[in-house]
């Protein structure tokens, strides 16, 4: 049977709305698989009730409910540059790369509003024009490919990727 434990944890935002998360639920899916949820009281009650109702449906009922809930809210889409999922950011509080601000823009907007009371930068900007978003994203992906190529000892590919990185970085860094 899936097992639920409720425990207090440090301040965090609810994953389903933007209230303070007060309940933290660890779903034990199997011996070595866990899933963590951070919810405010209202959303937690709703979640637990739904889980209970689905409980009779079989062994994976709760886990499925969790997955459905998560997919419905954030999707499982990840940043093509750094591979981070929004759920991972929720748990750690740290984004993976500059590109995430575009990839998760919709999810981040209410969060930014909550933290800063504003969602648009106003203040200093670099005098030099920064690289456009696409170049930034491509560079991060290329570095990932370079690492992989080196690991797999595919030096031809590594050399190609390195040239492309150099090309993009010319006059950039």
């Amino acid at each position: 049977m899936p097992f639920q434990s409720l425990h207090e944890k440090r301040a965090m935002k609810c994953q389903k709305c933007h209230n303070q998360a007060t309940l933290h639920i660890t779903e034990v899916l199997s011996d070595d698989q866990f899933e963590e949820l951070h919810l405010c009281e209202g959303c937690a009650n709703k979640y637990l009730l739904e889980a209970q109702q689905k409980g009779g449906a079989g062994k994976t009922g709760v886990a499925e409910a969790v997955r459905e809930a998560e997919e419905g809210l954030f999707g499982q889409h990840e940043c093509p540059s750094c591979g981070i999922k929004f759920v991972e950011f929720r748990n750690s509080g740290r984004l993976g790369c500059p590109n995430d601000y575009q990839v998760f823009r919709e999810e981040l907007l209410p969060l930014l509003e909550n933290i800063h009371g504003e969602t648009r930068h106003c203040g200093k900007s670099p005098r030099r024009l920064p690289q456009d978003q696409q170049t930034q994203s491509e560079l991060i992906q290329l570095r990932g490919r370079l690492k992989l190529a080196v690991q797999q000892e595919d030096y031809e590919e590594a050399a190609r990727v390195r040239d492309r990185i150099r090309q993009l970085e010319e006059g950039v860094v």
Partner: peptide
């Protein structure tokens, strides 16, 4: 400040 072409430190 962060460099545009790299993931953040933690990643």
């Amino acid at each position: 400040r962060n460099l545009a072409a790299f993931p953040f430190t933690n990643r």
